[in-house]
Simulated assay, not measured.
Amino acid sequence: MNIISDMVVPARAPYSVTLKAGQLMRIIDLESQQAVDALFYNAADTSERYSAQDTLAAQAARGGTFYLETGAVLLSNEGRAMATIIADTCGFHDTCAGACSCESNTVRFGHETRFMHACRENFLTELGRYGLGKRDLVSNVNFFMNVPIRPGGELTVDDGVSAPGGFVELRAEMDILVLISNCPQVNNPCNGFRPTPIRIIVSET
């Protein structure tokens, strides 16, 4: 295995990388219970990007669930495979709850949270590096985030279930741009109310 990059992403920070088809990205939850939000774009044509709707529809057609787990294929808005989860110690990941923002913090937790750091701001920071902006924000994956779906269809954010050193590993199925927000949320338990660093290793065989 040839390691291309190995870095620690600080708590609350953004990160981005371009993966070539066949390369692997391992996201490691160093201290446990840290949500990691991710966006995916075709590196050659960013108008093609991750679609939670297409991904979940394909999973449902195969009898799968609303969660992403080992073997899950992340599909684009053109129905093409972007990445596959090839290894996972957590057991499931969310792609329904979206990314936190200053606006949603205000609605959910009160006006005093209006200017708290949020994943949407991390994503916009990284998107700007590639000439992209607000119009390019799409549905995202929340790795390590525990979002039970209640019988009535409500989403609830509960304590994360990942242990220290837990990881998820993806294989790129096309050249993809990956944007990461190491979630800064402190108003719900997705980060155990204490955002922590993560480690990201990019490799190839």
Rank of each mutant, 00 (worst) to 15 (best):
70 T>K: 08
71 G>F: 08
73 V>T: 11
73 V>I: 14
73 V>Q: 06
74 L>C: 03
74 L>A: 10
77 N>H: 13
78 E>Y: 15
78 E>S: 14
79 G>A: 09
80 R>L: 07
80 R>V: 06
80 R>P: 08
80 R>F: 03
81 A>L: 08
81 A>V: 06
82 M>Y: 08
83 A>M: 12
83 A>K: 00
83 A>V: 12
83 A>Y: 01
84 T>W: 04
84 T>Y: 04
84 T>Q: 13
85 I>C: 12
85 I>H: 06
86 I>P: 00
86 I>R: 04
89 T>C: 02
89 T>W: 04
89 T>V: 05
90 C>P: 01
90 C>H: 00
91 G>M: 10
92 F>N: 07
92 F>E: 02
93 H>C: 04
93 H>L: 11
94 D>W: 05
94 D>P: 12
95 T>G: 03
95 T>W: 00
96 C>P: 03
97 A>I: 11
97 A>F: 05
97 A>S: 15
97 A>P: 03
97 A>E: 09
98 G>I: 01
99 A>I: 15
99 A>S: 11
100 C>G: 04
100 C>T: 07
101 S>P: 00
101 S>H: 05
101 S>Y: 07
101 S>K: 07
102 C>F: 06
102 C>Q: 14
103 E>G: 07
104 S>C: 14
104 S>Y: 07
105 N>A: 05
105 N>T: 05
106 T>N: 00
106 T>L: 01
107 V>P: 02
108 R>I: 07
108 R>Q: 12
108 R>S: 13
109 F>P: 01
109 F>V: 03
111 H>L: 10
111 H>P: 01
111 H>D: 10
111 H>K: 13
112 E>P: 00
112 E>L: 01
112 E>Q: 07
113 T>I: 02
113 T>E: 10
114 R>W: 06
114 R>T: 11
114 R>S: 06
116 M>R: 01
116 M>N: 07
116 M>E: 02
116 M>H: 03
116 M>V: 08
116 M>P: 02
116 M>L: 04
117 H>C: 05
117 H>T: 08
118 A>M: 11
118 A>P: 00
118 A>S: 15
118 A>I: 02
119 C>P: 04
119 C>W: 01
119 C>Y: 01
120 R>H: 07
120 R>F: 07
121 E>T: 09
123 F>E: 01
124 L>M: 10
124 L>F: 02
124 L>D: 00
126 E>V: 14
126 E>Y: 10
127 L>C: 05
129 R>G: 14
129 R>T: 15
130 Y>V: 04
130 Y>I: 01
130 Y>E: 09
130 Y>Q: 07
132 L>N: 13
132 L>W: 05
133 G>H: 15
133 G>L: 15
134 K>E: 14
135 R>I: 11
135 R>W: 05
136 D>C: 11
136 D>R: 02
136 D>G: 12
136 D>F: 03
138 V>G: 06
139 S>N: 15
139 S>L: 12
140 N>E: 12
140 N>K: 14
140 N>P: 13
140 N>I: 15
141 V>C: 11
142 N>E: 06
